[in-house]
């Protein structure tokens, strides 16, 4: 088991956001976390990597409980995180953005060099010295993923990677995620677009009002249209 989350509860100030979240990610698996805006997808990710400080529960990554560690230590341990809204460093060039993400090679995780990333995202290789602020939204999204891969993670949390991107770029994103999976990276993707989730994931969880209300394969979800329609409003 790559990642095991149990009894995760999170708070923003007095507001209770996540209730007893439990989810598991197997070795080399791609898991989608589906739910509407405000359901708690981002908070789940932020809680796992320690950006939400007020949290309780167990977060076991590669057999080790990381729920008391600070963000940077969790990430250095090989758990990569790509936040929503891209958040690249707009003043820094592509190369410098990648430099911020660079971490030493680690055992049991694929090793990424700049050159290897430029083969995965050929666009980026053509604009190594361009400031991030002068890239299009699609290019920026690719850069955030490449930047996180520079840390040689064995698991990556991808928060809404398709949001605000054109259909064509979303299709490229599908290819990139499948390529990452092939290299051996385990991935959790949060999404609202079920079409997108279908193309990449082995299993899905549905989150609604801070609670996990479904977990299973896509086929199992399709067998339960009641669940799907109630929680995803499709």
């Amino acid at each position: 088991m790559k990642l095991q989350v149990a009894d995760l509860n999170s708070f923003y100030g007095p507001a209770h956001i996540l209730f007893d979240i439990a989810l598991e990610v197997g070795e080399g698996e791609v898991v989608a976390l589906l739910g509407r805006n405000g359901a708690g997808k981002s908070t789940t990710f932020r809680s796992i990597v320690g950006l939400v400080e007020n949290r309780s529960g167990r977060i076991v990554f590669e057999g080790k409980d990381v729920s008391r560690e600070p963000t940077h230590a969790i990430v250095r341990g090989g758990l990569g995180y790509v936040p929503e809204e891209r958040r690249i460093f707009t003043d820094l060039t592509v190369e410098e953005n990648l430099e911020v993400g660079r971490q030493p090679k680690r055992p049991n995780a694929p090793y990424w060099t700049r050159e290897k990333l430029f083969t995965l995202f050929p666009n980026l290789g053509e604009m190594r010295n361009r400031p991030g602020g002068r890239m299009s939204g699609g290019e920026q999204q690719m850069l955030t993923i490449a930047r996180t891969l520079m840390g040689n993670p064995s698991l990556v949390l991808l928060d809404e990677p398709s949001e605000g991107l054109s259909p064509k770029i979303v299709e490229q994103m599908v290819d990139a995620i499948l390529a990452m999976k092939k290299e051996g990276v385990s991935i959790v993707v949060s999404e609202q677009n079920l079409h997108f989730a279908r193309l990449i994931s082995d299993r899905v969880y549905i989150i609604e009002r801070g609670k996990i209300c479904f977990g299973g394969t896509i086929a199992e979800l399709d067998a339960r249209p009641d669940v799907r329609d109630a929680h995803l409003s499709l």
Binding site: S166, P167, K168, V170, E171, N193, H195
Partner: peptide
């Protein structure tokens, strides 16, 4: 070719 792609990601 430029934008819509194969149409895999919408209804």
């Amino acid at each position: 070719a430029i934008y819509l792609g194969e149409g895999l990601v919408y209804d």
